[in-house]
Every structure is written in C-alpha cells, then in structure tokens.
C-alpha cells in the first residue's frame, strides 16, 4: 500500500483543506468555576483544556520567588486516551516536560509578570484529544485562560504549526501530516507587534524555504489571533449581559 498523499495535484490536503487553510477552530472561556481562569479550544480534532490559578503566593519553597516579577509555572499533560495508541502516563515523560518548558517560555514572554512580584501564576494545560498541533492548541487555550483569569498580557499569544510538503508550505498540520516525516515548525506569535514568542523546528529544512515557512506560519498565527479575539469579545459580551441582569 502506498503512503499517504499529503498534497494532491489539485492542491488539496488529506482532509480537503488548501495549504494555507486552518482547521475549524472553536473555543470557550470560563469552562470551570473553581479555577481563576479556564478555557477550552478545539482546532479540528485537537482538543485542549487550559486552567489558570493565580497570581497567588509561591507554593512550596519560597526561594523560587522572584523579587521583581511573578513566576510562571506550567504543566503540560495529555489524557491517557488522547492519542490513537493509549498513553501509559499523562505527564512526566520527556516530551511533556519539554512541552511544559516551552509553554513557560512562551508565556514568560507574553504575561506582564512584573506586575506581580514574588507571586506565582500556574498554567495547566491538558490535551483531551490529540490530532497534531498539540503545542499550538495548548498555547491558544492558555492565552484564553490567562485572559479569563484577568491577568494582563502584552498581546494574545497565538500559535500555529506549519510544515513543508512538495515544496509548498502547509499550515496547521493534522497528525497524519505531522507524522509524515517532514519538517514541522511550531511558532508562537504576538500578532500586534509581530514578535515571535517561540519558534521551534524539527527535521531538516533548506535555508531557502525557511522564510516561506515562517511567513506561512505567521500568517496562520495572525488569522488565529483574529479568531481568539472574536472568542474573547463574545465571551465578554455574554458575561456583561449576565452581570447587567
């Protein structure tokens, strides 16, 4: 049996999208009541939950506290049933730890931590269903959760993945596209200023293609930013209607 044809001659991807099209994005803020902030996002079949606790006192050892800004504490985990093949542990493996670190770096760049010295902000994300672009879904969900918690940020952090198939940059990869063995780039962008909060790339890519790939990923991030903005505005409207009552 032949492998998957990631991009047809007619320019359609496996799921029928064109190279520059995102998957369907649906999101909601304020999913949980107990947490300070929470959000849920679906990017195609990738589903992520993010919860924010804080800012609060530094838990555990006081020595972790920073005198000039807040500590961002992240944990990334995946539901054991989230992948096609069942995972044995939800977190604690190398990949999850790496992902936690990436999230921490991303949000340290975006959250105005200097407003909360000597305190801690917890961001916990959970992948409920995984179909590629886990990092991006987590970042996008966490952005909404941080906004839900009322913690000021420089800008939305929007993340999207991009890859290279048949000399064409394709964005928002699904699992089948990610596992095709080609280059996968994850990029987190602060869209207003156009600053990159995190960029990471696996596998080799020729330098000539790098610009095209970055550009595609950044465009995708910007359109995601608009979607997230829409979600936040709608949420605010709903909440203000409720409080007005």
């Amino acid at each position: 049996m032949a492998g998957l044809e990631l991009l047809s001659d007619q320019g359609y991807r496996l799921d029928g999208r064109k190279p520059s099209e995102l998957r369907k994005v649906q999101a909601r803020m304020g999913v949980f009541t107990q947490a300070d902030g929470s959000a849920y996002i679906e990017q195609g079949n990738t589903k992520a939950l993010a919860v924010v606790y804080g800012p609060h006192e530094v838990r555990g050892s006081r020595s972790k506290a920073l005198h000039d800004r807040a500590v961002i504490n992240c944990q990334y985990s995946m539901a054991t049933f989230s992948t096609a093949e069942r995972k044995r542990r939800p977190h604690g493996d190398r990949k999850s730890s790496e992902m936690s670190l990436h999230l921490k770096q991303t949000f340290e760049a975006a959250v105005l931590t200097s407003l909360y010295p000597r305190s801690q902000i917890d961001i916990f994300v959970k992948i409920l269903q995984s179909d590629g672009g886990n990092y991006s879904a987590c970042v996008n969900a966490a952005t909404l959760a941080v906004i839900d918690a009322g913690i000021p940020m420089r800008d939305y952090v929007c993340a999207c993945s991009a890859g290279f198939v048949e000399n064409t940059a394709v964005v928002d990869l699904c699992h089948a596209e990610e596992s095709g063995g080609g280059t996968v780039m994850s990029l987190a962008l602060l869209p207003r200023g156009g600053q990159v909060a995190l960029v990471q790339m696996d596998a080799r890519l020729h330098q000539d293609h790098l610009d095209a790939l970055m550009e595609a990923a950044m465009t995708a991030c910007r359109s995601l930013g608009q979607v997230l903005d829409g979600v936040v505005r709608q949420h605010l409207q709903e909440v203000s209607v409720l409080t007005a009552e």
């Binding site: 029928g16 079949n45 093949e85 179909d131």
Partner: peptide, 23 residues
C-alpha cells in the same frame, strides 16, 4: 461554509479519526 464529517479507519485496533472537510 465548511461542514465536517468524521471518517474513522481502524488499522490494527487503533481508532484513527480524521477530519474531512467538504468544500
């Protein structure tokens, strides 16, 4: 106007779910 339909394909006992966009 994209609606989506899920397509499942079982390979081994893995349940693989893929999106399928209609245009």
């Amino acid at each position: 106007s994209k609606t989506f339909v899920k397509k499942t394909r079982s390979g081994g006992v893995m349940k693989i779910v893929r999106e399928h966009y209609l245009r």
